[in-house]
Simulated assay, not measured.
Amino acid sequence: MRKLILLFTLLISTVAFSQELNCTVSVIAQQTGNENDMIYKTLEKQLTEFINNTKWTNKTFKQNERISCSMVINVKENNNDMFSASLQVSSSRPIFNSTYSSPVFNYNDKEFNFQYLEFQNLVFNETQFESNLISVLSFHVYMILGMDADSFELKGGDDYFKQAQTIASYSQQLNGQGWKLEDGLQSRFALIDNLMSPSYGGMRSAMYKYHIEGLDIMNENQKEGKNKIISVFDELKKVHSVRPNSFLMRVFFDAKADEITDILSGGPSVNISDAMDTLNRIAPMYSQKWRNIKY
Rank of each mutant, 00 (worst) to 15 (best):
F105E: 06
K289H: 08
S135Q: 01
I95N: 11
F119D: 09
V141K: 03
D254M: 04
V239R: 03
N271R: 10
K226H: 12
R250P: 05
E65L: 06
K62G: 14
M207H: 14
A164S: 01
N58W: 06
S135F: 00
N221W: 05
D254E: 14
V104H: 05
V25Q: 00
V232I: 03
T127S: 15
R281K: 15
S70M: 08
S84N: 12
F61L: 09
Q173H: 07
F247C: 07
T54W: 07
F61A: 12
F161I: 01
D254S: 07
I260W: 08
D37T: 00
R2C: 11
Y142G: 02
G156E: 07
Q172F: 06
R250D: 14
S273G: 07
F139V: 05
T57N: 12
I230A: 15
D262S: 15
T32F: 01
S199K: 13
N194S: 15
I260L: 15
N113D: 15
D109N: 10
G184E: 08
M71V: 00
S171Q: 05
K228G: 07
F233C: 07
S169N: 13
S101F: 11
D158R: 13
Y107C: 08
P103W: 01
S90L: 04
N97Q: 15
K45M: 06
W290C: 13
R243H: 14
S246W: 06
H140Q: 10
A283W: 02
E77R: 03
P94Q: 05
R188K: 10
V75P: 04
H240Y: 15
I167E: 10
S187A: 04
A164N: 01
E118I: 06
V72I: 15
S171E: 08
Y295E: 12
H211D: 15
S138E: 06
T48F: 07
R204E: 09
Y160K: 01
K76Y: 11
K223F: 08
T57L: 10
K226Y: 11
M276T: 08
S187H: 01
G214Y: 02
S269T: 11
W56I: 02
T99C: 09
G202H: 03
Y40I: 00
H211E: 12
R93S: 12
S287H: 10
E35M: 02
K209A: 14
F161R: 02
R66V: 02
V251T: 02
L264F: 14
G267S: 03
E182N: 14
N121R: 12
T127A: 12
R2K: 14
Y40T: 00
A29W: 00
Y200P: 10
V123F: 13
N113R: 10
D109S: 06
S92D: 12
F96Q: 13
D109E: 14
N74F: 03
N64K: 14
V89E: 08
N121M: 11
I134G: 08
N97R: 13
E224R: 04
N175Q: 12
Y116D: 03
D159C: 10
Q177R: 12
M38Q: 14
S90A: 13
L7S: 13
P268N: 03
S68P: 04
L279C: 13
D183Y: 01
Q31T: 00
F105H: 05
N79W: 09
I230S: 11
W179N: 06
F233T: 03
Q173E: 12
F83Q: 00
D193Y: 09
R291G: 08
R2A: 15
